[in-house]
Design a protein around this nucleic acid. Structure first.
Lengths: 224, 224
DNA sequence: CTCTCTAATTGAACATGTTCAAAATAACAT
DNA sequence: ATGTTATTTTGAACATGTTCAATTAGAGAG
């Protein structure tokens, strides 16, 4: 097996299949695209598609991994330009939606299994923990660099809470039938206000009991 | 078409298919059960199953409708026994989980499409609005009868917010791998505390701005 | 160059949800 | 009773994601 600089022959075939698939997914949607079409467009036999990808959905997952790398880079570049907490959080969300937008038609295929505990591609599954953690790390960074004071007990959980918040928005966006998903824009703005307020108020002494209850819930969710 | 008192022949066949399906679903899970098995166990041809049910998932939906009727009745009976807000909300949740418990294995089949906007069986779809509204009405009743003061602007939306809360808990329960789903019990308890506190505090003058932001978010979600 | 072993490729076969045209049965009008 | 229409039943056929045994190509050893 030679391991040349660019792409081994094998990598190139895999790439061709991925490209063909994403092209067809974008064109006709996930469900409308058949694996036979993908194979044909990639110029390989049906079996080959399965040699490189476990399943149809795995292809979407490959896209997602690819996209995340790009998004992480982009966010790392844009984040330092923003100072306030809201604008920093918004930067992350903007990059996400911008990258997802041309692929809305088939990203649903992944989200469709959000709630399926058995599916390894579910955003809550063990297999996608890595993606989650990377996302959460960026949220941590966004909060960190904003100079916002966050109580210690909350600090630990905030990144994953923000990740959940993001998932909610993405879910809403998938459902959003308004032209150009304008309603999502409104929601992002309003809900960011809310989230930012909550984070800022969370430090007030008055909030201690509420915060404690919230954290108990969080702990119950994340497993004692 | 005769319409006798009990069950027309047709209703009886439909019932037999439904019973056979649920039996197999409970026994072997949704995915493991094939429509051919269902038909065989019901003593009909494969095509008949599709004459009575649009799809495999529709069968689960039929169960859900049936279950809701039973649950509504049960809740209506249990609710008046409880006075406080927390115990009234808990009554609803307890009845739900109790009814769902023996069917955990296949209810996931419905939840699996929670996030699929295209699926008519999604709990957010137009086709399931009726179920949502009935559920919300019971939450309204639970709040109503608890003598808890709820600000006017919030009152309108609270029932559906509680419905969302319930969906979150059910989702968690589906994922919950702890024996007997004990973690869900803990979560129900803790999160009920939180929800009840939030509702009670929501009336404080201090909360006005937060409440307004929350309601703006709710309005953005439910469509301007 | 030939042999051997691994990686890659192939397409037929399979499983299963779903559709559909045809047949059987029931309901009804005259 | 007979013809007519609506309901129910049937199983073969279809579509498509997935598996797999067989084949081919490639790389390294001798």
């Amino acid at each position: 097996m030679k391991e040349a600089a660019g792409k081994s022959k094998s990598e190139e075939t895999r790439g061709r299949i991925l490209t063909a698939a994403l092209h067809l997914f974008r064109e006709n949607g996930f469900d409308q695209t058949t694996m036979r079409e993908v194979a044909r467009e990639a110029g390989v036999a049906l079996g080959s598609a399965y040699y490189y990808f476990e399943s149809k959905e795995t292809i979407v997952m490959a896209f997602y991994h690819q996209a995340q790398d790009a998004m992480v880079a982009r966010i790392e570049q844009d984040l330092p330009k923003q100072k306030g907490l809201k604008s920093r959080l918004r930067t992350i969300l903007d990059v996400k939606f911008q990258h997802f937008e041309p692929n809305r038609k088939f990203l649903g295929a992944l989200l469709a299994h959000t709630a399926d505990p058995k599916n390894p591609l579910s955003p809550f599954s063990e297999q996608t923990r890595d993606l989650r953690d990377k996302d959460a790390a960026q949220f941590a960074q966004a909060v960190e660099g904003s100079g916002t004071k966050v109580p210690d007990d909350l600090k630990e959980h905030l990144p994953h809470l923000l990740w959940m918040f993001q998932m909610g928005l993405i879910l809403f966006w998938m459902y959003d039938r308004s032209p150009g998903q304008r309603r999502t824009l409104v929601l992002v703005d309003k809900s960011l206000d809310l989230v930012v307020s909550l984070i800022k108020f969370s430090g007030l002494p008055l909030m201690k009991p509420v915060r404690r209850t919230v954290l108990e819930v969080v702990r119950a969710v994340s497993g004692d």
